[in-house]
Write a protein that binds this DNA or RNA. Sequence first.
DNA 1: CACTTGACCTGTCCGC
DNA 2: TGCGGACAGGTCAAGT
Length: 290
Amino acid sequence: MPELPEVETVKNGLNRLLKNKKVQSVVYDWPKGFPNSQADVNNFLIGASILTVKRRGKSLIVNLSSKYCLVIHLKMTGQLVFRGKEQFGAGHPNDSLVGPLPDRSTRVILTFDDDSKLFFNDQRKFGWMRLLPEIEVANLNFMKKLGPEPLSSSFKNTEFRSRVRRRKNSSIKATILDQTVLAGVGNIYADESLWIAKIHPSSLSGTLSDNKLNLLIKSIKEVFTKSISLGGSTDKNYVDAEGKKGSYLEFANVFRKEGQPCPRCNTIIIKTRVASRGTHLCPKCQRKTK
DNA sequence: CACTTGACCTGTCCGC
DNA sequence: TGCGGACAGGTCAAGT
Protein backbone atom coordinates (compact mmCIF):
# COMPACT_ATOMS: atom_id res chain seq x y z
CA MET A 1 0.00 0.00 0.00
CA PRO A 2 2.56 2.57 0.80
CA GLU A 3 4.54 2.28 -2.42
CA LEU A 4 7.08 4.77 -3.77
CA PRO A 5 4.64 7.70 -4.30
CA GLU A 6 3.10 7.34 -0.85
CA VAL A 7 6.48 7.09 0.89
CA GLU A 8 7.72 10.09 -1.13
CA THR A 9 4.65 12.06 0.00
CA VAL A 10 5.23 11.15 3.65
CA LYS A 11 8.90 12.09 3.27
CA ASN A 12 8.02 15.51 1.88
CA GLY A 13 5.54 16.12 4.67
CA LEU A 14 7.98 15.07 7.40
CA ASN A 15 10.66 17.34 5.98
CA ARG A 16 8.25 20.22 6.13
CA LEU A 17 6.92 19.41 9.59
CA LEU A 18 9.83 17.95 11.57
CA LYS A 19 12.90 19.89 10.49
CA ASN A 20 15.07 20.96 13.45
CA LYS A 21 12.65 19.65 16.02
CA LYS A 22 14.34 18.07 19.00
CA VAL A 23 13.15 14.71 20.32
CA GLN A 24 12.10 15.09 23.92
CA SER A 25 10.65 11.68 24.75
CA VAL A 26 9.74 8.38 23.13
CA VAL A 27 6.94 6.05 24.13
CA TYR A 28 6.94 2.55 22.64
CA ASP A 29 6.24 -1.05 23.48
CA TRP A 30 6.72 -2.93 20.27
CA PRO A 31 9.74 -5.26 20.49
CA LYS A 32 9.31 -6.70 17.01
CA GLY A 33 8.69 -3.42 15.21
CA PHE A 34 11.10 -1.24 17.20
CA PRO A 35 13.63 -3.51 18.93
CA ASN A 36 16.22 -0.94 19.99
CA SER A 37 17.24 -0.90 23.66
CA GLN A 38 16.22 1.84 26.04
CA ALA A 39 19.91 2.77 26.24
CA ASP A 40 20.13 3.35 22.47
CA VAL A 41 17.00 5.44 22.58
CA ASN A 42 18.31 7.48 25.50
CA ASN A 43 21.74 8.01 23.96
CA PHE A 44 20.97 8.61 20.31
CA LEU A 45 17.32 9.54 19.86
CA ILE A 46 16.24 11.53 22.88
CA GLY A 47 17.87 14.94 22.74
CA ALA A 48 18.72 14.62 19.02
CA SER A 49 17.31 16.99 16.39
CA ILE A 50 15.77 15.96 13.07
CA LEU A 51 18.11 17.05 10.29
CA THR A 52 16.47 15.66 7.18
CA VAL A 53 14.27 12.83 5.94
CA LYS A 54 15.21 10.80 2.86
CA ARG A 55 13.61 7.97 0.93
CA ARG A 56 15.17 4.89 -0.66
CA GLY A 57 12.67 2.60 -2.36
CA LYS A 58 9.81 2.28 0.11
CA SER A 59 11.99 3.02 3.17
CA LEU A 60 12.35 6.29 5.01
CA ILE A 61 15.63 7.43 6.54
CA VAL A 62 15.40 10.10 9.22
CA ASN A 63 18.82 11.66 9.83
CA LEU A 64 19.45 12.85 13.36
CA SER A 65 22.00 15.28 14.81
CA SER A 66 23.43 12.36 16.84
CA LYS A 67 24.83 10.80 13.61
CA TYR A 68 22.27 8.06 14.08
CA CYS A 69 19.18 7.67 12.01
CA LEU A 70 15.80 6.07 12.12
CA VAL A 71 15.15 3.72 9.23
CA ILE A 72 11.43 3.15 8.85
CA HIS A 73 9.32 0.84 6.69
CA LEU A 74 5.55 1.28 6.65
CA LYS A 75 4.85 -2.06 4.93
CA MET A 76 1.08 -2.29 4.37
CA THR A 77 -0.74 -0.37 7.05
CA GLY A 78 1.90 1.89 8.58
CA GLN A 79 1.23 5.58 9.07
CA LEU A 80 3.47 8.40 10.29
CA VAL A 81 1.19 11.18 11.41
CA PHE A 82 2.35 14.47 12.85
CA ARG A 83 0.16 16.49 15.19
CA GLY A 84 0.79 19.88 16.71
CA LYS A 85 0.05 20.15 20.41
CA GLU A 86 -3.46 21.57 19.85
CA GLN A 87 -4.51 18.71 17.52
CA PHE A 88 -4.09 15.48 19.49
CA GLY A 89 -7.75 15.02 20.08
CA ALA A 90 -8.85 15.69 16.51
CA GLY A 91 -8.66 14.12 13.07
CA HIS A 92 -7.57 16.06 10.05
CA PRO A 93 -10.44 18.30 8.90
CA ASN A 94 -10.32 17.04 5.31
CA ASP A 95 -12.26 13.80 5.63
CA SER A 96 -9.37 12.03 7.31
CA LEU A 97 -9.09 8.36 8.15
CA VAL A 98 -7.33 9.35 11.34
CA GLY A 99 -9.22 10.47 14.41
CA PRO A 100 -7.95 11.38 17.83
CA LEU A 101 -4.42 10.15 18.50
CA PRO A 102 -3.07 8.00 19.94
CA ASP A 103 -5.51 5.31 18.80
CA ARG A 104 -5.39 1.53 19.16
CA SER A 105 -3.01 1.16 16.19
CA THR A 106 -0.44 3.58 17.64
CA ARG A 107 2.85 1.72 18.25
CA VAL A 108 5.39 4.51 18.84
CA ILE A 109 5.03 8.15 19.88
CA LEU A 110 7.84 10.69 19.52
CA THR A 111 7.31 13.92 21.42
CA PHE A 112 9.31 17.00 20.37
CA ASP A 113 10.51 19.96 22.40
CA ASP A 114 7.55 22.12 21.31
CA ASP A 115 5.09 19.43 22.52
CA SER A 116 4.19 18.37 18.98
CA LYS A 117 4.16 14.62 18.35
CA LEU A 118 4.81 12.07 15.64
CA PHE A 119 2.63 8.93 15.83
CA PHE A 120 3.75 5.68 14.19
CA ASN A 121 0.51 3.79 13.69
CA ASP A 122 0.37 0.31 12.22
CA GLN A 123 -2.78 -1.76 12.40
CA ARG A 124 -1.18 -5.00 11.20
CA LYS A 125 2.25 -4.56 12.79
CA PHE A 126 4.16 -5.54 9.64
CA GLY A 127 6.00 -2.23 9.64
CA TRP A 128 9.20 -1.55 11.56
CA MET A 129 11.62 1.11 12.69
CA ARG A 130 15.31 0.83 13.61
CA LEU A 131 17.67 3.28 15.25
CA LEU A 132 21.20 2.81 13.93
CA PRO A 133 24.39 4.74 13.14
CA GLU A 134 24.00 6.54 9.83
CA ILE A 135 27.16 4.96 8.41
CA GLU A 136 25.51 1.54 8.77
CA VAL A 137 22.46 2.31 6.65
CA ALA A 138 24.18 1.66 3.34
CA ASN A 139 25.41 -1.67 4.70
CA LEU A 140 21.99 -3.01 5.58
CA ASN A 141 21.48 -6.13 3.57
CA PHE A 142 18.25 -5.10 1.95
CA MET A 143 19.67 -1.65 1.11
CA LYS A 144 22.63 -3.19 -0.68
CA LYS A 145 20.35 -5.39 -2.77
CA LEU A 146 17.76 -2.74 -3.63
CA GLY A 147 17.38 -2.00 -7.34
CA PRO A 148 17.66 1.46 -8.92
CA GLU A 149 15.35 4.38 -8.23
CA PRO A 150 13.09 4.82 -11.26
CA LEU A 151 12.79 8.59 -10.81
CA SER A 152 16.52 9.20 -10.38
CA SER A 153 18.28 11.19 -13.11
CA SER A 154 20.93 8.48 -13.31
CA PHE A 155 18.39 5.74 -14.07
CA LYS A 156 19.35 3.75 -17.18
CA ASN A 157 16.89 1.80 -19.31
CA THR A 158 19.66 -0.60 -20.31
CA GLU A 159 20.23 -1.53 -16.68
CA PHE A 160 16.50 -1.99 -16.13
CA ARG A 161 16.22 -4.33 -19.11
CA SER A 162 19.16 -6.45 -18.00
CA ARG A 163 17.83 -6.71 -14.44
CA VAL A 164 14.41 -7.73 -15.76
CA ARG A 165 15.97 -10.37 -17.98
CA ARG A 166 17.82 -11.98 -15.09
CA ARG A 167 14.35 -13.15 -14.12
CA LYS A 168 13.35 -14.42 -17.54
CA ASN A 169 11.04 -17.17 -16.30
CA SER A 170 9.09 -15.00 -13.88
CA SER A 171 5.97 -13.14 -14.80
CA ILE A 172 6.67 -9.50 -15.57
CA LYS A 173 4.44 -8.53 -12.66
CA ALA A 174 6.47 -10.58 -10.17
CA THR A 175 9.62 -9.09 -11.67
CA ILE A 176 8.66 -5.44 -11.26
CA LEU A 177 7.39 -6.15 -7.74
CA ASP A 178 10.86 -7.50 -6.91
CA GLN A 179 12.61 -4.67 -5.08
CA THR A 180 16.04 -5.95 -6.13
CA VAL A 181 15.08 -5.38 -9.76
CA LEU A 182 13.55 -1.94 -9.32
CA ALA A 183 12.84 0.02 -6.14
CA GLY A 184 9.38 1.23 -5.30
CA VAL A 185 6.72 -0.67 -7.28
CA GLY A 186 3.90 -2.35 -5.37
CA ASN A 187 0.63 -3.92 -6.39
CA ILE A 188 -1.30 -0.80 -7.37
CA TYR A 189 1.33 0.74 -9.64
CA ALA A 190 2.30 -2.64 -11.10
CA ASP A 191 -1.25 -3.09 -12.43
CA GLU A 192 -1.56 0.53 -13.55
CA SER A 193 1.76 0.67 -15.39
CA LEU A 194 1.25 -2.72 -17.09
CA TRP A 195 -2.12 -1.49 -18.35
CA ILE A 196 -0.59 1.70 -19.78
CA ALA A 197 2.17 -0.32 -21.49
CA LYS A 198 -0.40 -2.89 -22.76
CA ILE A 199 1.49 -5.81 -21.24
CA HIS A 200 -0.26 -8.84 -19.74
CA PRO A 201 0.97 -9.24 -16.13
CA SER A 202 1.64 -12.97 -16.67
CA SER A 203 3.92 -12.40 -19.66
CA LEU A 204 7.27 -14.00 -18.97
CA SER A 205 9.93 -11.38 -18.39
CA GLY A 206 12.27 -12.96 -20.92
CA THR A 207 9.74 -12.67 -23.75
CA LEU A 208 9.41 -8.87 -23.77
CA SER A 209 11.16 -6.79 -26.44
CA ASP A 210 13.42 -3.83 -25.73
CA ASN A 211 10.63 -1.55 -26.92
CA LYS A 212 8.09 -3.09 -24.57
CA LEU A 213 10.41 -2.84 -21.59
CA ASN A 214 11.25 0.76 -22.45
CA LEU A 215 7.55 1.51 -22.63
CA LEU A 216 7.00 -0.25 -19.31
CA ILE A 217 9.59 1.78 -17.43
CA LYS A 218 8.25 4.94 -19.03
CA SER A 219 4.78 3.98 -17.77
CA ILE A 220 6.07 3.29 -14.27
CA LYS A 221 7.72 6.73 -14.15
CA GLU A 222 4.54 8.28 -15.47
CA VAL A 223 2.21 6.72 -12.85
CA PHE A 224 4.70 7.48 -10.07
CA THR A 225 4.99 11.12 -11.08
CA LYS A 226 1.26 11.54 -11.44
CA SER A 227 0.59 9.84 -8.12
CA ILE A 228 3.13 11.96 -6.25
CA SER A 229 1.41 15.06 -7.61
CA LEU A 230 -1.89 13.72 -6.21
CA GLY A 231 -0.51 12.79 -2.79
CA GLY A 232 -0.42 9.04 -3.49
CA SER A 233 -3.15 6.38 -3.34
CA THR A 234 -5.39 5.71 -0.38
CA ASP A 235 -6.88 2.26 -0.63
CA LYS A 236 -7.68 1.61 3.02
CA ASN A 237 -5.11 2.92 5.46
CA TYR A 238 -2.68 5.23 3.77
CA VAL A 239 -2.48 8.85 4.92
CA ASP A 240 0.32 11.41 4.62
CA ALA A 241 2.24 13.06 7.45
CA GLU A 242 -0.69 15.40 8.13
CA GLY A 243 -3.23 12.57 8.16
CA LYS A 244 -4.63 13.38 4.73
CA LYS A 245 -5.61 10.80 2.12
CA GLY A 246 -4.11 10.60 -1.37
CA SER A 247 -6.35 10.88 -4.43
CA TYR A 248 -4.57 8.91 -7.15
CA LEU A 249 -7.09 6.06 -7.10
CA GLU A 250 -9.77 8.43 -8.41
CA PHE A 251 -7.73 8.43 -11.63
CA ALA A 252 -6.77 4.74 -11.69
CA ASN A 253 -7.51 2.88 -14.91
CA VAL A 254 -7.64 -0.75 -13.77
CA PHE A 255 -6.85 -1.10 -10.07
CA ARG A 256 -10.08 -2.09 -8.24
CA LYS A 257 -11.99 -1.50 -11.50
CA GLU A 258 -13.08 -5.08 -12.19
CA GLY A 259 -16.46 -5.22 -13.90
CA GLN A 260 -16.05 -1.74 -15.32
CA PRO A 261 -15.18 -0.86 -18.93
CA CYS A 262 -11.56 -0.33 -19.95
CA PRO A 263 -11.05 3.42 -20.52
CA ARG A 264 -9.22 2.61 -23.76
CA CYS A 265 -11.36 -0.06 -25.45
CA ASN A 266 -14.49 -0.56 -23.31
CA THR A 267 -13.80 -4.25 -22.71
CA ILE A 268 -14.75 -5.27 -19.17
CA ILE A 269 -11.79 -5.23 -16.81
CA ILE A 270 -11.19 -8.48 -14.95
CA LYS A 271 -9.57 -9.34 -11.65
CA THR A 272 -7.37 -12.40 -11.50
CA ARG A 273 -4.34 -13.65 -9.63
CA VAL A 274 -0.74 -13.22 -10.78
CA ALA A 275 2.37 -13.54 -8.62
CA SER A 276 0.05 -14.44 -5.70
CA ARG A 277 -1.48 -10.96 -5.89
CA GLY A 278 -4.88 -9.65 -6.83
CA THR A 279 -4.33 -8.43 -10.39
CA HIS A 280 -6.49 -6.17 -12.54
CA LEU A 281 -6.24 -6.05 -16.31
CA CYS A 282 -7.99 -5.49 -19.61
CA PRO A 283 -8.12 -8.84 -21.42
CA LYS A 284 -8.18 -7.15 -24.81
CA CYS A 285 -5.53 -4.43 -24.43
CA GLN A 286 -3.15 -6.64 -22.47
CA ARG A 287 -2.55 -9.75 -24.52
CA LYS A 288 -0.30 -12.43 -23.20
CA THR A 289 2.99 -12.85 -25.05
CA LYS A 290 3.59 -16.21 -23.37
C1' DC B 1 21.27 -18.60 -8.40
C1' DA B 2 16.22 -18.53 -9.98
C1' DC B 3 11.78 -19.10 -8.52
C1' DT B 4 7.64 -20.10 -5.44
C1' DT B 5 5.22 -20.36 -1.25
C1' DG B 6 4.17 -19.50 3.48
C1' DA B 7 4.54 -16.59 7.50
C1' DC B 8 4.04 -12.37 9.68
C1' DC B 9 -0.62 -9.52 11.59
C1' DT B 10 -5.34 -7.54 12.14
C1' DG B 11 -9.66 -5.87 10.38
C1' DT B 12 -13.34 -6.54 7.24
C1' DC B 13 -16.47 -8.88 4.50
C1' DC B 14 -19.08 -12.95 2.89
C1' DG B 15 -21.72 -17.10 3.38
C1' DC B 16 -24.06 -20.12 6.39
C1' DT C 1 -26.74 -12.36 15.26
C1' DG C 2 -22.49 -15.08 15.50
C1' DC C 3 -18.82 -17.62 13.52
C1' DG C 4 -15.35 -19.49 10.42
C1' DG C 5 -12.79 -18.61 6.59
C1' DA C 6 -11.01 -15.91 2.77
C1' DC C 7 -8.79 -11.87 1.66
C1' DA C 8 -5.96 -7.61 1.72
C1' DG C 9 -0.42 -7.03 0.20
C1' DG C 10 5.35 -5.77 1.39
C1' DT C 11 9.05 -8.51 2.40
C1' DC C 12 11.81 -12.22 3.98
C1' DA C 13 12.87 -17.03 5.23
C1' DA C 14 12.58 -21.44 3.78
C1' DG C 15 11.68 -24.64 0.38
C1' DT C 16 12.14 -26.76 -4.48
